[in-house]
Design a protein around this nucleic acid. Structure first.
Lengths: 106, 106
DNA sequence: CAAATACTGAAGTCATCGCTTCACTGACCG
DNA sequence: CGGTCAGTGAAGCGATGACTTCAGTATTTG
């Protein structure tokens, strides 16, 4: 699979999509139930769900005529992995700058 | 200030922008030096730098005719804050699902 | 001072995004 | 079976995004 980190961040860059995730953190929901409080069409939600699925934030499953959506961890873990991978490098660099800035910024 | 989290994630959603950050993690660089290995115009880099500055990933400073760019921590911290804020909620939810899935997935 | 350097601003192009409407397919209910 | 109900696919639309080119503006430098 190998989640595309570009798309993972892009997925989080949309407020409606993050709202969907927040909503799902309260428990699984159907597509139309997700659409209701967000003021967009069911179609729009469907499109958002597709990108959230591709980026590992959501897993969906159709039972009868209703599609049930719930959180998945892969996308979230991808973000955390990116963060930890860069934390060390950046901290080193930022620390180095910090000591310089004591005089530089003054 | 209050960094817009939308824009923070959008900023990271572009590969050129992340390449700039990676480059800067090796040390401060001028605009043209950043452009060189990335195969885009200096103008394009300037535009990327503007969004990276607005989202707290980069700080720049013009000395004479050359603008020197270096990493800043605010944007990075915003991402980590978002992650920690959601980790607990999601973990609870995902754990709850996990126990259900033992049977659900079979 | 003149020419080269380092960047900036405005404008334009092309692709992608978020969203809509409309027509449709299945599933369930009476 | 007929009528809702939940969701899907295709097409289109306006706005943004990631670039580019071209024409400046300061700053060095020879």
């Amino acid at each position: 699979m190998a989640l595309d980190i570009d798309r993972v961040f892009q997925a989080l860059g949309d407020p409606t999509r993050r709202a969907i995730l927040d909503r799902l953190s309260l428990g699984p929901q159907s597509v139309s139930k997700l659409a209701e409080p967000l003021g967009v069409t069911v179609t729009a939600i469907g499109q958002h769900l597709q990108v959230l699925e591709e980026t590992g934030f959501v897993r969906t499953q159709k039972a009868g005529r209703v599609r049930s959506c719930r959180l998945e961890s892969a996308g979230f873990r991808a973000v955390e992995q990116w963060a930890t991978e860069h934390r060390t490098t950046w901290e080193r660099r930022l620390d180095a700058l910090g000591s310089l800035l004591a005089e530089d910024d003054h």
